[in-house]
């Protein structure tokens, strides 16, 4: 196949294909800070907490579990999600944090998920688990990628895991043997092969959601805060998550805009 990509694009594409993900330092720190500041102010508003200015935002988020009651966690999460998604700038800043790599990995005419998801995983909490899964198995299009942004440093069980492509190939060939009767059984068979992501605030993870991934109970001493959002090329095939209801165009180019509105001239039959 002809490939006119530049050498840096070829390198990134090769890495993405080989590892199933890429981690990079954002080149738009201002946007990333905006996202974290908005989350912190939303926590203050919804949980009646005060971020003491002499303490870092990182510490405020990491120690969140010490400040709230466990049974209120999901309620807080939903309220914060609503607040961030009501903020008109939030989505744009999210996109800008990852724009450069999205243009290389996905394309420059993009659709973005309409609502950004937020994960809060307090230590030892088993109510926010995401068992091993591939997003494609639940109706996403294989043309999508996930941009995962941590608001705190994430490591070991405070992070997420992903099954590398070479290991996934073995699973794909013999799926029933691996999957067994439950996702728990499936995970037990792949847990030694998965890659635990180590990522710090300031970095962005972009991963291939077709690969099995998930999380386990957070056994570290800090709360994990991360956001995730899907992106795809506007004109590539959609899965169960459609344009309008789940995705919206965010970088439609002028040639496409003109083409979408183009109408052939009408010929009057009498003339």
């Amino acid at each position: 196949m002809i490939d006119f990509k530049e050498s840096y694009e070829k390198k990134l594409s090769k890495d993405f294909k080989k590892k199933g993900y890429l981690i990079f330092n954002t080149n738009d720190t201002a946007s990333l800070n905006y996202l974290r500041d908005k989350i912190v102010s939303s926590i203050e508003r919804t949980c009646n907490l005060n971020h003491k200015k002499n303490k870092s935002k990182e510490e405020f988020l990491n120690t969140f579990h010490k400040k709230i009651k466990k049974h209120n966690l999901n309620n807080h999460r939903l309220k914060i999600i609503n607040l961030i998604n009501k903020d008109r700038k939030f989505k744009e800043k999210y996109f800008h944090s990852a724009k450069k790599l999205l243009y290389t990995i996905v394309g420059n005419e993009l659709s973005m998920q309409t609502r950004i998801n937020l994960s809060i995983q307090t230590p030892k909490d088993n109510s926010s688990l995401l068992p091993v899964h591939s997003d494609i198995w639940s109706g996403d299009s294989p043309f999508e990628v996930v941009v995962w942004i941590p608001l705190v440093n994430c490591y070991k069980t405070k992070a997420m895991y992903i099954l590398p492509p070479n290991e996934y190939k073995k699973v794909e060939k013999n799926f029933s043997k691996y999957s067994g009767n439950s996702s728990k059984e499936f995970f037990s068979k792949i847990k030694k092969k998965v890659k635990w992501i180590h990522i710090d605030f300031g970095q962005i993870l972009i991963f291939n959601q077709a690969l099995p991934h998930g999380n386990v109970v957070n056994f570290e001493k800090e709360t994990r805060w991360s956001m995730n959002c899907r992106f795809k090329s506007i004109f590539s095939p959609y899965g169960d998550k459609k344009i309008g209801e789940f995705f919206e165009p965010i970088t439609l180019k002028v040639a496409s805009e003109l083409a979408l509105k183009y109408k052939l001239p009408q010929i009057d039959e009498k003339s």
Binding site: F235, P237, I243, E248, P249, L260, K261
Partner: peptide, 13 residues
């Protein structure tokens, strides 16, 4: 814009 994209999608690859 969303309407027009939705209409064109069946014609895309």
């Amino acid at each position: 814009t969303i309407w027009l994209i939705k209409k064109i999608l069946p014609k895309c690859l």
